[in-house]
């Protein structure tokens, strides 16, 4: 088990990343808090020895994505959130980017991870493939299709490369 000091350091260092990934997938604060706590509990109990900060961050990203997917596998949960709840999330965002947020959130779930990891965390396709455990070509395909879908939703006002 990891020490309290190590755990608090990890929370301070990676909590925003975990929180954003939750935001990409989940539609309410209760689920977000549930996953947030689950991820760090797994971290505390894990005996994985991290080679570097990047390794540690990649591990937390993978655990968060998997935890979100597990939560969303519950059919009823994924189908009982109202539209009001969905638009509650972007209210914390800058007003100028609400349309971008809605466009991202309207993407199928499998595209949202790669969009976030590529455009915000600046991971390359090979790095993303290692983190999410998918083929590099699959990641390229997911990125291309997501760009295409975002372009369709947001128009040509953005640079998509």
């Amino acid at each position: 088990m990891r020490s309290e000091q190590e755990t608090i350091r990890a929370i301070e260092q990676y909590s925003d990343t975990v929180r954003r990934l939750c935001a990409v997938h989940l539609k309410n604060d209760a689920d977000t808090e549930d996953i947030f706590q689950t991820v760090f509990l797994k971290y505390v109990l894990s005996s994985v020895s991290f080679e570097s900060d990047e390794h540690e961050k990649a591990w937390l990203i993978r655990v968060t994505i998997n935890a979100c997917k597990d939560l969303l596998k519950n059919f009823s949960r994924s189908h009982t959130v109202s539209l009001d709840t969905i638009i509650e999330q972007p209210s914390r965002l800058p007003e100028d980017y609400r349309d971008v947020w809605e466009a991202v959130f309207s993407l199928p779930q499998k595209y949202r991870d790669v969009v976030y990891l590529h455009y915000f965390e600046d991971y390359t396709a090979p790095q993303i493939s290692r983190i999410i455990g998918k083929n590099v070509n699959t990641v390229y395909t997911l990125l291309n299709r997501s760009k295409q879908m975002l372009r369709e939703k947001l128009g040509g006002g953005y640079e998509y490369e």
Binding site: A23, T32, R92, W101, Y119, D122
Partner: peptide, 19 residues
């Protein structure tokens, strides 16, 4: 687009209360 996403996601942060 990268810049747009930076601006989009940057405000999303783990609240102190959540931590």
């Amino acid at each position: 687009m990268n810049d747009t996403f930076k601006k989009l996601f940057s405000p999303i942060q783990a609240e102190e209360a959540l931590k």
